[in-house]
Write a protein that binds this DNA or RNA. Structure first.
Lengths: 308, 308
DNA sequence: TACAATCATGAGGCAATTTCATTATTTTAC
DNA sequence: GTAAAATAATGAAATTGCCTCATGATTGTA
């Protein structure tokens, strides 16, 4: 019967729990085991003599007591984050440079809000996006034309460190009245007679082509577009199909504009890493930026999962 | 090299540190050893890579980094306290009864502000003071005419529990031009030819008489007054001397209205306890009231010390 | 200068938290 | 409806981290 008092650790757990809707998912978010969180939550409930949430539902529902503690967690976590930023600035100064190289188009969806938040917190750090879509963003790091690169693979390289951001599933989208719209899982062959719509980037940067179509020897006809919304429009108008992150198309799926399918039996998983120069890993504003990206993304994008 | 993150425990330590001005005093306030706090603070400084305060001064001075964390602590502690009150209300309900029996006049100095704060937090609890100064306030508890008694000794009694509040020193006050005004320590004999001014209560409730004068067989002439300010006036006008809590007379000492002396070599220590019925010990509003009293008193009264 | 008070430090003990392994329960799929 | 999968609870073992103890260093004071 542990009688330990409330700690910030507990509040962080509650926040993760509210965002994930399940104990096991929340456990991944705070890098602990499901068991640890189960014990921790039970200890909290014992401490206050109150149930904090109903376990029999999915996603779980908080009780009024749970809601109250959750409200505290929300109030406190912002204050703590602000104080810790100030501590970092006191240690390392206010200024710095953060030029970001981006390799994927959809990244902008989550990058922009994160950059906006970051600008508020670190007004003296020069924040930039390195223009163009480079096939080798990591090269830009070493030649000091960028300070941070967003990439989908962590290829070991001297002097470069990869920090996991998050993982998500790429889904195939098609018109609602597409003949195969009801098929929940598509295989490479199903795409043989389709038109594939994608961003105008080299094939190596298209996971669907590189990981699925090429290995299967399937080569559908192509069409490109720069803008996500334009691709959605083309798909809805039966001009072809496209592979998109689930979180990018969920709003359109919910409104019934298009249909979606899983790619391959176990789905096409995508991962995102931030690459930094080894020397910059400990920079406070760098760490804070990555933290902001993760926080914001998990809070706003549906279907994300934690990346080791 | 501990890398543990910030916890509420650390913030509480910083608050105690700011109020006490020394690590060892703060340690008593949070019921830990000086060593524990020293380790804890060092861990914090290591964690942020910043000094939090200068140890070479008395009272210690916070660095800007320390001030920043202290500010966080102040913001957060209020929020946490509020949430924990709400949790208690959720568990036990809003209402209750809290009738307080008081045995000493000066208690009102700290009791009133505490009661005001409490009323804000527990509007549905009936808060009262049991009128008159009873020689046996604990009796009122058992006959259910009071729910809490303030007393200066913890005499064991069935069904009654004593909770320590705080300890302080009683000092002798006299006119500034009193012949013995420069004497730093008075003994019982020094009072033989004085007039002792005190509240109109039985001798057993006067620590000076019971613990010092009676054992020494000294019996000075007396004069009584109901009001603290009136007693101060009489003392300043050379009508006699009085024994008062240090914290009650400090403002007058600072302004030079009167002089003070220690009573006996090691001073006359007074203690205050709250007596409750055993059954009420776990009542949330009761615990919160006692907590409020301690917090408020330590924050506003000078020279208090912790009571085991 | 010595003494008292305060603070720092390292080692050791202990308790709180985490993990592991397993069982119970709920949800999903067929 | 049952089987399989996912999720949560539980107890025991292990680890981690915190606190205390004992002692030495430092600061302020008579």
């Amino acid at each position: 019967m542990s009688q330990s008092q409330l700690e910030l650790r507990h509040l962080k757990t509650l926040l993760a729990l509210a965002e994930c809707g399940s104990v096991s998912q929340a456990a991944k978010r705070v890098f602990l085991t499901q068991s640890a969180l189960s014990h921790q939550l039970k200890a909290l409930e014992d401490h206050y003599g109150l149930a904090l949430f109903e376990r029999k539902t999915q996603p779980l529902r908080f009780t009024p007591a749970g809601e109250r503690l959750l409200a505290l967690a929300r109030e406190v976590s912002g204050l703590v984050a602000g104080a810790e930023r100030d501590m970092a600035r006191l240690r390392e100064g206010e200024a710095g440079e953060l030029r970001i190289a981006v390799e994927c188009h959809t990244c902008f969806d989550w990058l922009m809000p994160a950059m906006d938040a970051f600008r508020q917190h670190w007004p003296a750090v020069e924040l930039d996006i390195v223009s163009g879509f480079h096939a080798d963003p990591v090269g830009l790091l070493l030649t000091r034309r960028a300070d941070l690169a967003i990439c989908s693979e962590a290829e070991p390289q001297d002097g470069v460190v990869y920090q996991p951001l998050f993982a998500y599933e790429m889904v195939l989208i098609m018109a609602k009245d597409h003949p195969l719209a009801a098929k929940p899982v598509w295989q490479a062959d199903d795409l043989a007679s389709e038109t594939l719509i994608h961003y105008p980037v080299p094939d190596v940067m298209l996971d669907l082509v590189r990981k699925v179509l090429k290995p299967a020897g399937v080569n559908p006809s192509r069409r490109t577009s720069e803008l996500t919304v334009a691709i959605i429009q083309l798909v809805a108008s039966r001009r072809g199909v496209a592979a998109m992150p689930f979180w990018a198309v969920k709003p359109y799926l919910d409104r019934g504009y298009i249909a979606s399918a899983r790619i391959g039996e176990s789905g096409l998983q995508s991962e995102l890493y931030a690459a930094l120069r080894q020397d910059d890993v400990l920079l406070a504003y760098m760490r804070d930026f990555l933290h902001t990206v993760r926080e914001q993304s998990f809070a706003t994008l549906p279907g994300l999962s934690v990346l080791a």
